[in-house]
């Protein structure tokens, strides 16, 4: 229990987000382009980190579905910046040994000849440590 709190506090510190600023309007989730691919949605990330319900988020594939488009950051009326919370949760996972979501060996199967380098480095930065 204590550990869960620590993880949340660390996520809050690292993201620089104050989840208490959220007024629960759902605009972040209303705007999210990856919503349908997510089990937990941006507003739920904020709420679950605030309330300490962190384990489902750490286990969820939703953390790899955020496109880092920052639309939720700009459209949030309260300046909560949900994308930063999503990123901080993801870092809590992939920083653990052996938790890389994307491995170099997986890569050849994903490539095609037009794919820009930018896609590969971006995915590695978001998915692996």
């Amino acid at each position: 229990m204590e550990n869960k709190k620590d993880v949340c506090n660390e996520i809050i510190r690292r993201s620089g987000v104050n989840p208490r600023k959220c007024m629960k309007c759902g605009k972040c989730s209303g705007t999210c382009p990856a919503y349908d691919e997510m089990e937990y949605h941006p507003h739920q990330f904020v709420y679950m980190v605030e309330t300490g319900d962190i384990e489902p988020l750490l286990k969820s594939k939703s953390i790899y579905r955020c496109l880092s488009c920052f639309a939720c950051i700009d459209r949030c009326p309260r300046g909560v910046e949900p994308a930063k919370i999503v990123e901080a949760v993801r870092l809590s996972v992939i920083r653990e040994q052996g938790n890389n979501h994307l491995k170099a060996d997986d890569l050849p199967a994903m490539l095609d000849e037009d794919l820009p380098q930018q896609a590969i480095v971006s995915a590695f930065r978001k998915y692996s440590k």
């Binding site: 629960k24 759902g26 605009k27 989730s29 209303g30 705007t31 999210c32 919503y35 949605h41 507003h43």
Partner: peptide, 11 residues
């Protein structure tokens, strides 16, 4: 109109 329905947990 794209928006969230927080009760149904849907976009």
């Amino acid at each position: 109109v794209q928006g969230s329905d927080l009760i149904a947990n849907k976009q």
